[in-house]
Design a protein around this nucleic acid. Structure first.
Lengths: 148, 148
DNA sequence: TCTAATCTCTCTAGTAACTAGAGGTGCAAG
DNA sequence: CTTGCACCTCTAGTTACTAGAGAGATTAGA
């Protein structure tokens, strides 16, 4: 039986994150030692590793929850898991396309900003009036793209 | 003078978002009508458009705050704005690289999942034991990549 | 065996960037 | 004048955690 710190190291997931996963029901409630500390066995560690890998591949926790419930019933068709992964793939592709467009835009801005004064700065200017950019690129509606 | 709904439409930023921007100090406090409703002029609308464009290009609000304070002093060198935009470009490029790797991984998973049972499903298996994947890809430490 | 250092516990609050909803008021058209 | 939409404030929820306080558990060394 491993303490939380050990599976944290083993699975590469931080201690508070593990407790958080338990809290939201992604991990079952851990056994406790006499002194109330969490104890984990092999199965828990595998489950945590699964979660970590899926997170690394960009799956949101809800999708992971679904995948876990699928993997708990190994006799069923693979189709549902396939659907989740496919949706994830499509989302990733969409993000790549979007980011590639942003990259081009940023490069254009920067090329034109050659050490002048703010008054003539293309970075500022382009952001103030995007019409000065090239015309229509997809109007996005929700602005949830975020810098890493 | 325009009401909040009008500049919302004009700038393409939702009404609650505008109030939020005011609350966090990205927009100055708006004038009010006799009946306590917010009123906006040309300048506020331009500022909001600037924010919207920058958000669309993936700038975080903190960076936008910096850019706005730069654009308020047009006599200074463009270097700071350039630096912010460059950092943003680098962040975007890093995200693209990461997502491209994820895409390859997901595609590999899916190719091998050809309608079998969960017990043999590569999607589940790969997530359970990433060693079954190809070896080392960048160990990321923080798992903040999210599906769109 | 004692003690000091390191874990671990719970709980609360904070992060980014909003979104949603409740319950109430302003305003313009018919 | 009333109907109905737009607006107001405030609170709480979202995702996936992270940080910190204050207290108890465990373990390694003297």
């Amino acid at each position: 039986m491993l303490t939380i710190g050990k599976i944290s190291d083993a699975a590469g997931v931080k201690v508070p994150t593990i407790r958080y996963y338990e809290e939201i029901g992604l991990l079952p409630e851990a056994e406790r030692s006499a002194g109330n500390q969490r104890l984990y066995g092999q199965k828990a560690q595998e489950r945590l590793t699964f979660i970590r890998n899926a997170r690394e591949l960009g799956f949101p926790l809800d999708a992971i929850r679904d995948l876990l419930s699928l993997s708990d019933r190994p006799d069923q068709s693979c189709a549902a898991a396939d659907a989740i992964a496919s949706a994830q793939l499509a989302a990733v592709e969409a993000r790549i396309a979007r980011l590639t467009a942003l990259k081009a835009e940023l490069e254009r801005m920067l090329v034109q900003c050659a050490g002048g004064m703010i008054a003539d700065c293309r970075v500022i200017e382009v952001l103030g009036d995007h019409a000065k950019c090239h015309a229509d690129h997809a109007p996005t509606g929700h602005l949830t793209e975020v810098a890493g």
